[in-house]
Amino acid sequence: MYTQSFNVPDGPDTAAASRDIKPVLSAHEQQVLVKAQMRFDEVIDADGKIEPKDWMPQAYRKTLVRQISQHAHSEIVGMLPEGNWISRAPSLKRKAILIAKVQDEAGHGLYLYSAAETLGTSRDQMLDALHTGRAKYSSIFNYPTLTWADVGVIGWLVDGAAIMNQIPLCRCSYGPYARAMVRICKEESFHQRQGFESLMVMMQGKAEQQAMVQDAVNRWWWKCLAMFGPPDADSTNSKQGMRWGIKRVSNDDLRQKFVDATVPQAAVLGVNLPDPNLKWNEARGHHDYGQIDWDEFWATVNGNGPCNKERLATRVKAHEDGQWVRDAAMAYARKQQQRQQQEAA
């Protein structure tokens, strides 16, 4: 999913790290740098954690800022497709559940923005990158939610795929990211289960409801497989990510795990996964599956999916509409502070 680099200027903590791009180093600086790199490698090799104030290579910092901020953006933009259904949920119970889920997504975005900020980028810089279209977020949110069944399918399949992706991130070498992921994974389980359960209820309903679920599965299945990112052979950044302990399991392995886990769930639900080539391969001990349409995936990543413009415009508008609230809160805080100082004087 992390497909395009965007450069975020480094914060003050990176002064030491930026030494490695200076062309000329004194002998002493060289020595300090070599020692710092050695210490970093030792921690990584021992499967330890890197913390915000530890020295880290510039490229490690940059990769993390990009990945964590893109992850945060995905959580925030991810509220939109489901948010559309809050006012149209079929019952008060489903509405309350959906509100809680969408609120969780906001929370996840906030944990992740905070984790990224420990690397020396600011919240404003990240939001600016998102709002100006420089930053990427998960492509899956650029597709529309056409019926109520889409909300269930997003919980079951999209969040299911996200969980597969996120569980290995709990062991990420960067401490603040790993801790945020632990918290997120605990909450994701609710997201997937509520989706699956809501689909089970629909599958016990009328033929129209069952058809609605099948239609939603047909539209989302391939997009979910693409969520794991390009095949291992084509993902150039994976190797370095593995070396750094940022990425633990390859795209194809995660995808396979997701397919194998989902097939029996679909059987319980009574829906077909829309892939004629999907079948159990005894020799491999896994399910085989068909070709993913990567051209369509890349077109969406590069801004030409059905909802890219709408999602971004909605985000930007929400941010701009909230400007007066942020300003007013700041003005109020300053006034209170002044009043306190006057009283103290």
Partner: peptide
């Protein structure tokens, strides 16, 4: 924890 110049209008971090 960051103190870069661009965050003057950002709400402070807690």
């Amino acid at each position: 924890m960051s103190t870069s110049a661009s965050i003057a209008n950002e709400w402070p971090l807690w």
